[in-house]
Structure formats: structure tokens, C-alpha cells
Nucleic acid binder design. Structure first.
Lengths: 238, 238
DNA sequence: GTCAATTTGTACGTATGTATG
DNA sequence: ACATACATACGTACAAATTGA
């Protein structure tokens, strides 16, 4: 036996193959038996290497099916300005947004407080699903003060873009004032909407966007599929 | 073989023994051979159980010496809900901090890549528990390049502060280069350490700190109890 | 829907290497 | 130097889940 264990060399070899694109996300690796044969080691030695890769989240084994390269969790930068479509497109993934609900109703207590509205004020609600490469990434629900943005729903229906809808109301620039992140198991309905197994972990963010004067213009709540998303804070984000 | 694998029963048995105080923090477990004999299984089956416990940080194996129980919190204020808002920028300031492990070892692949070390390089590991009002909030594990910070462990042992330990090595200023946040259900052992029900949601953050020149100095991984913590990002934090 | 082949998971066995005390 | 104890690595066999004919 050399300096370092045999299985580490195998792990590194497979890691490099994945990094080089030899095995792409979603691909199935050769079977354990084939890998053992190729590297000239016992199947258990391969399994030790695969166990390390699985622990690091690079691959995922399915009994009877094979070992698969994981999709890297979709990076979702949390910055002053979130650009969902640009970021996903830059990552080579196909972004999609599906409208689930557009309505106007009375703000509840939490919404009224966050948006600094009086009780009983009306808000527009925009609820939808964000997808990448066809897989649901997040369920979002945004509320806007109806008095200030009277045509919000129509604007959202045509563009699906919050930024564009704000621009249609003369609001060119808005920034994120506060974000709160928690985690909890998915409720059955939420799991179904995100196409996750029941009880899967959910990343919940609550964010408030404000205009240039600091007035709240949007309360956005998002429920991310915990294993499909990695919220990232870049250096500029701290 | 029954419904669930043999090794899980052995893992749970040992977990309960530790919880009951049969094996106290710092104690050495019986040898793998003794455990195999006691449970009437092969030594490898015991090793599979121990590997699971080690991965979650409940025990720690030292070649030639034995398997040791890590320090865990004793008090368990049941049903106590802690309201705790931790700001990421002030992540180093928590009411209480408990050291679970201080050791030096070879960096694994993920750590070596994040810290830009060559494979086989040594790292110092600082693992501990953050608590508020006696309830566990988060488990953290930080690794530092050993070559650059030779006295890290001693500095951490005396101060418990990463900032102070860096300062003792002449590093006055360091910044967060990248933070990644994901969510997933707690493993049984992690749930035990954070005193959560099995399957509870975990907020996992991975952060890299760099010095003024942009060189990585710390890879910090933290597992937050999803329902006891709300990570908040203020406007100044974006 | 069933059956058979494939593939990973579990469990045991044996031997040897390497660090500890 | 020596015994102890974990780490690695080989081997065998069968169970359980998946897949495709």
C-alpha cells in the first residue's frame, strides 16, 4: 500500500472525470463492478470511494439503478438585486416561471406591517412557481401595495417580471432591504407543488424590497426546494 | 435480515448508551472486536454503524487508540422554544459556545479545494456547538490550513474565538468570500446533537473566509436547527 | 403484469498495514 | 520491542430495488 489509501486515488479519479465533463450531471456512472474492473481493485474499494463522493454530495446511488452524478444545486445569489433569469441563463439552465395566482385582497397583519400599510389596505398578490430545466425550484408569493401600483396584476400577467411591472409604474430602481431565512419540513401540499417527497426540507426566505426612498414596495416570500437550491452570498453580499 | 439493516440497530443501541450516560463524553467505546462480539455480528457491521456515528460527529476514531465519545450537551430543556435571530455578519457572537473537538488531520477533497491546498495537506479542525438559553442552535465545523496557522488549536482552546486566534497569527483582517445555504432533513445523529426530532429541517451554510490578499483562511460549515434560527440579512449586509 | 437480468446494499470472512500506548 | 486497535483491501454470498423484455 502506498502513501495514501487506494480508494482516495479512485475517488480523485472519478472526481476529475466529473469535473472534465466525462460524466455530466444526471449521468449514470459505470457500475461498481465495471469501475472495480477498470481500476483493478475490489468492488468494496470502489464502494469506499463512492461513499466519500456521496457524502460530499457529488453522486447519489439508487439501489438497482446505479450511481448518478448529482445536479449541482442551482445557485441562487442573494444580493441587493436578484436576477433570477439572468443567473440561471448564465448557468446554462433554462429558467421558467409559472403563474399560479394573481389576485387583490386585504393585507393580513404580517403583510401590512412589512409594507407599512394601515390595516385593511389592499394588496396585490402574485404567486407562482420558478423552474430550472423543468424541475420546480421554488414557490414564491409576492404582495404589493395596491394603492401605489394599481395596474400591477395586468403588468405581471403580460410580463411575468416584477422588475418590468415596477418599471411600468415608474419605479426604475428598487433594492432588497431585509432577508430572513429559515428551514422547515415541507407540508404535504407544498411538497406536491415542488414535486418533492413528503417531509423534504424547505428553505423559506422572507424579503422586503424598498424603493429609493426606503419605502417598502414588495414583501416576497419564497419556499425553495432545499436540495435543489443553494442560496449564495457573494463577497459583495457581505 | 429484518426490515432495516442490522447496522442501524447497532448504531441506535450505541446512541442510546451514550445518551443514557453509559459512555460519557471523552470515554473510549469498547473495541470494534468487543462490540462485534457483544452484538453477535461481524466487525465490519460494527464499523458501518460507527462510521455513521462518526459522520455526524458523535464519536471519533483514532487509529491504534480507540473510538471516543465526543462532548455533548447534557441539559435538555424540553419544549423550550428559543427565539433567536442570528445575523450572519455577527455570526461569531453567540451567547454560549461549547467545544466538541479540536484536532489536526489530513484535509479531505472538499476542504483541500476550498482552502486551495494540495491533497494530503494538514488542517486544524474546530468543531463545536452554539447555544442560546441552553438550547443548541447550531453545530459548526471550521477547518484552517495548519501550515499557515500552526498554533491555531491552542489559541482556540484558550479564547474560543476564531478572530482572536487569527489575530494571534498576525491576521488582523479577514472577510467572507462566499456563503452557500441549503436545507435538508436532519440525520438521526445530527438531530440528536441539536436535540431535534428526527427529520427536522436543517439549515446548512458553507462559508469561506479569506485574508486581505484573497487567500482562503477558513472553511466553515454550520448546521442550524431550522426552526430555532432565522438567518437575517440586513440592507447593510447586501 | 410478470419474470429475469442488472445493480446497489448488507453481511460475513480473512489478511495485512499502521498508529498508539 | 511488543501487544493492541483501527484502517485498508481483498474475497464470497445473498437480499432488495430497479429496469426492460
Amino acid at each position: 500500500m502506498g502513501r495514501s489509501p487506494l480508494w482516495t486515488a479512485i475517488r480523485d479519479h472519478i472526481t476529475e472525470d466529473i469535473a472534465r465533463g466525462q460524466y455530466a450531471p444526471g449521468d449514470r456512472l459505470p457500475t461498481e463492478a465495471q469501475l472495480a474492473d477498470r481500476f483493478g481493485v475490489n468492488r468494496h474499494t470502489v464502494r469506499r470511494a463512492l461513499a466519500d463522493l456521496a457524502e460530499a454530495g457529488m453522486v447519489h446511488a439508487r439501489r438497482g439503478a446505479g450511481v448518478f452524478v448529482r445536479h449541482r444545486p442551482t445557485a441562487y445569489p442573494l444580493g441587493r438585486r436578484v436576477r433570477f433569469h439572468q443567473n440561471l441563463t448564465a448557468a446554462g439552465r433554462v429558467p421558467e416561471r409559472r403563474i399560479l395566482l394573481l389576485e387583490t385582497r386585504i393585507a393580513n397583519a404580517e403583510e401590512a406591517e412589512a409594507l407599512q400599510l394601515e390595516t385593511g389596505a389592499q394588496v396585490h398578490v402574485y404567486e407562482g412557481l420558478s423552474l430550472a430545466d423543468g424541475a420546480p425550484i421554488a414557490l414564491f408569493r409576492s404582495v404589493f401595495p395596491a394603492a401605489r401600483f394599481p395596474n400591477m396584476l395586468a403588468a405581471l400577467r403580460s410580463s411575468q417580471s416584477v422588475t418590468a411591472a415596477f418599471a411600468a409604474h415608474g419605479l426604475g430602481d428598487y433594492t432588497r432591504a431585509r432577508t430572513e431565512i429559515t428551514a422547515k419540513p415541507a407540508t404535504p401540499t407544498l411538497a406536491a407543488q415542488l414535486q418533492l417527497p413528503a417531509g423534504a426540507a424547505i428553505l423559506r426566505t422572507v424579503a422586503v424590497n424598498v424603493d429609493g426612498a426606503g419605502l417598502p414596495v414588495e414583501l416576497g416570500r419564497t419556499w425553495f426546494a432545499g436540495d435543489r437550491v443553494a442560496l449564495t452570498l457573494g463577497a459583495e453580499g457581505l
